[in-house]
Nucleic acid binder design. Structure first.
Lengths: 347, 347
DNA sequence: GTTCTTGTTGCTCATCTGTCTCCCACGTCC
DNA sequence: GGACGTGGGAGACAGATGAGCAACAAGAAC
């Protein structure tokens, strides 16, 4: 246990050497020529005294804090933030960095966002991770550019900052593919009404995948609603009310899928025997707990957090040029998570 | 937007005064005697240059970082962590502090926990918040004591550190009370099997509340299972299979309540007409999204995070003596959140 | 009316925080 | 008199802090 009051000076005195020597030994300075005996003694005494460097003083001198700022939207309300934080924390720690976290809101004003970044800057973080809660376009605080920064789950409207985003299209293709693979030929899509990239890309991928499989993608039924349970319920009721209703349903997210489950139950449709459903998000609390378990597409929040951190640190350490990566956002795949809500359609 | 390269020295030169004077003005040093004109000029120039103090240098000199360490279990998997973080972040920011977050696991080794605290200590945080994911007893890393610390959602086995915990008993009483108030006389409890304070206290409160209402608390049906959806389902099937089954069910948590919903559906019991259910936790994703919405008891995670932070800062600033508060944990109430799963029993 | 004392105002100097890093010093052996 | 082996000194990082120093004014002593 390190005693906070012990400094390099105390170690130096106890070991009978200079502060310089202790610093040289403990930092393994390449050009320092110090005898093995002295080295051993310094290390032993340092250990014995429970010495730990004062990272503040270190940072002040070296101009490196080893701290990364993470400004994240809606930490409390979505589990997604937690996964990004976890991915970032683990990646950071593996390389000796720590995270300073600041919560913000999706609806925060530009001034407030700027103040958040400012706080991080005053603390001299080495880099900043800017995470939004769902994939969308954002305009960034102007001061973000003053240290290396990476966007997580969004791209900048100006578009010249490195970003990681999920492969919406690939995920949607996987979801529809699972339905197709099970033998479904009448597949519907319950979509979101928000104008975000996911809405458009998933819809487009939905139609394309059907068309490529020889079905009429353009004619496939699509119903849009607010992306919550209630919206999913309403959209499902509508889509299942048509004649010749779909036997497979791709839902914009797990919450809407949950609504679709209820609609199915009310209509006496059993899942997956009468109706197969695939969701999106893999919100454990929902997807794993519905009955039957929901087959869904996972968003790579952990991976995006880790990827962003990894590359941010590379940039901080001069191993990478973020400007080059900023040309196109990096796209991480959204794997299908198979549970029990998909089966072959009834004959 | 503060230019990171501007220091107090630049402001001093631009204003034609000494560094000391700038420092005195900007920090409103009480004993400094500086003319109003000079003050105004310094402030104006500082603003104009976009000067912001380097918090590292400040911290080095003042021995105050204005940073609080938060080690939290399972950031990614439970939304509870998010609410604690949010409460802590908002309370901290309101007082000019920031949070350094470290994730740990509920099953982390003592060494790893100690290393986490050590990391925080090396960075010279002013205080530490130690948050667990559910109310339980923990043994703490030995080095936690070296700075002011507060436990969130748990009490130390040694028991001499300030802690905030939820009012399990009050919450359970409120839950059972809601059922009683609606007119139920046959009330059952679906409990957890883990040996944690919540399990015992909720059970005890369940029986006591019934007894105090003139019912036979000791005879009331209780079934225990793993505290997940499946466990809730199984326990509910058992409890509802008896003769004269309960018309009101208090569930250990929302996940178990979700299982009870399914059991009820399978038995043809409509909620709340045939069966009233109350949960615990208020996990939005579940409680608000079940149909009908689940009446449940909210755990004060946000409040605990805020309370802990508030008092930790008081201690850091010498306004409070944590040792005094350590005698007994502070208990925060668990309010009932009414939705639509409780109604009067059928005659 | 001059000089001395005492006080006040306005600001600066020197030093400190803990660590790193460039450059130099000392002794010894060829 | 270099080369080598060992190690130390003195800033510098950016700001905080308390003692101290001019400059000037008012009051007191003569």
């Amino acid at each position: 246990m390190s005693n906070k009051n012990i400094g390099i000076k105390d170690v130096a005195v106890a070991a009978g050497v200079s502060v310089t020597t202790v610093s040289h030994v403990l930092n393994d300075v390449s050009y320092a020529r110090i005898s093995p005996e002295t080295r051993d003694k310094v290390r032993a005494i340092s250990e014995q005294l429970g010495y730990g460097p004062n990272r503040l003083a270190q940072a002040l001198r070296t101009q490196r804090t080893g701290m990364l700022g993470l400004v994240s939207e809606e930490i409390a309300t979505t589990p997604h933030a937690g996964r990004i934080i976890l991915g970032a924390d683990e990646a950071a720690r593996a390389r000796g960095y720590n995270l300073m976290i600041i919560n913000t809101s999706g609806s925060a004003s530009p001034e407030s966002r700027q103040a958040d970044v400012e706080t991080l800057l005053e603390r001299r973080v080495d880099g900043i991770l800017y995470a939004t809660m769902y994939h969308r376009n954002v305009e960034l605080p102007a001061n973000l550019g003053s240290v290396p920064s990476v966007l997580v789950d969004s791209v900048a409207t100006g578009g010249n900052i490195t970003a990681v985003i999920p492969d919406e299209e690939g995920g949607a293709r996987a979801a529809v593919g699972a339905l197709l693979e099970a033998g479904h030929t009448r597949v519907g899509f319950i979509n979101n009404t928000d104008d975000v990239p996911a809405t458009r890309q998933r819809l487009q991928a939905f139609r394309a995948t059907l068309t490529e499989a020889g079905l009429d993608g353009d004619a496939a039924p699509v119903e849009s609603e607010i992306s919550e349970v209630q919206g999913g319920y309403e959209a499902a009721r509508r889509i299942l009310a048509g004649e010749d209703p779909p036997t497979g349903l791709f839902c914009y997210n797990d919450r809407m899928a949950m609504g679709a489950y209820r609609a199915a139950a009310e209509l006496g449709l059993s899942i997956p025997a009468d109706l197969s459903i695939v969701g999106f998000d893999d919100q454990e609390l929902i997807a794993a707990n519905l009955y039957p378990g929901l087959t869904t597409v996972a968003l790579p929040h952990y991976e995006m957090g880790a990827w962003a951190t990894e590359h941010l640190i590379d940039a901080v350490e001069g191993k990478t040029d973020l400007a080059l990566m900023a040309l196109h956002p990096t796209i991480l795949s959204c794997p299908l998570v198979r549970r029990d809500s998909v089966a072959a359609p009834r004959q």
